[in-house]
């Protein structure tokens, strides 16, 4: 049996919306194994993005436990969380590229933060962009790239520091269907050929079916699970 890299125990998250507490997550229990391709499916407001943010160490839970590679994330301070995030690849719905940087510079950025030298990260950025099929567009800025291309850059960037797993928040939510299909092929290839663990949040049933396992969320809880 494969190693468990993410484990949540009774995970809870309550936001304050003004003075009203909103329970975004109420008792989520989830285990993700290394090499898995998991999709989290649910309507908006079901808490799936909140869950993803917690797993991505972008936010702190208000209750329960979250273990990433057996480390209890809730015990970590800001610095340790930042170090943890360096080993997690994030892909956002709105790409979140730095507009003033070229594709290559964007892919280099996480490696620069990690302290890699210019030569090393330049070479790796080129390899990654080649892998996502953007070898010829690496010196273009995000505004000169299509949505699909921008998301490929974002995927390359997410892979830059050899992450333990990839978190994708509606990765095709802002891309036309043809490009969305191609992005999904790339993601599947990463999972199948490179063994990258992937957790993808979506509200699109057909997209979720591309993953090998799907958990269904509703009102801050996992209500069912299907294996595709």
């Amino acid at each position: 049996m494969a190693k468990t890299i993410i484990k949540t125990v009774d995970l809870r998250k309550t936001y304050m919306q003004g003075k009203i507490p909103v329970e975004a997550l109420r008792s989520v229990n989830l285990e993700v194994e290394e090499g898995e391709f998991l999709s989290i499916l649910g309507p908006s407001g079901s808490g799936k993005s909140t869950l993803l943010n917690l797993i991505g160490a972008l936010d702190k839970p208000t209750g329960g436990r979250l273990f990433i590679e057996n480390i209890d994330v809730s015990t970590l301070n800001d610095n340790q969380l930042a170090d943890l995030r360096m080993k997690i690849g994030f892909v956002f719905q709105f790409f979140n590229l730095i507009p003033r940087f070229t594709a290559k510079e964007n892919v280099e950025l996480p490696m620069a933060i990690a302290g890699l030298s210019k030569g090393v990260r330049g070479k790796r950025a080129e390899e990654l962009l080649e892998m996502v099929g953007l070898a010829s567009r690496m010196n273009h800025k995000p505004t000169e790239l299509s949505g699909g291309e921008q998301q490929r850059v974002a995927i390359a960037r997410a892979l830059a520091n050899n992450p333990r797993f990839l978190l994708m928040d509606e990765p095709t939510g802002n891309i036309d269907s043809k490009n969305a299909f191609e992005i999904m092929q790339l993601v599947k290839k990463l999972n199948e050929e490179k063994g990258v663990t992937i957790i993808m949040v979506t509200h699109d049933q057909r997209l979720a079916a591309e993953a090998r396992r799907t958990v269904h969320m509703l009102d801050g809880m996992i209500v069912s699970e299907t294996v595709n």
Binding site: A82, N96, L109, P110
Partner: peptide
């Protein structure tokens, strides 16, 4: 703000 969020998501520390 958003850019700072991206930098932090990519692992940048507060001090940096």
């Amino acid at each position: 703000t958003r850019e700072i969020g991206i930098l932090k998501a990519l692992g940048m520390k507060n001090r940096q």
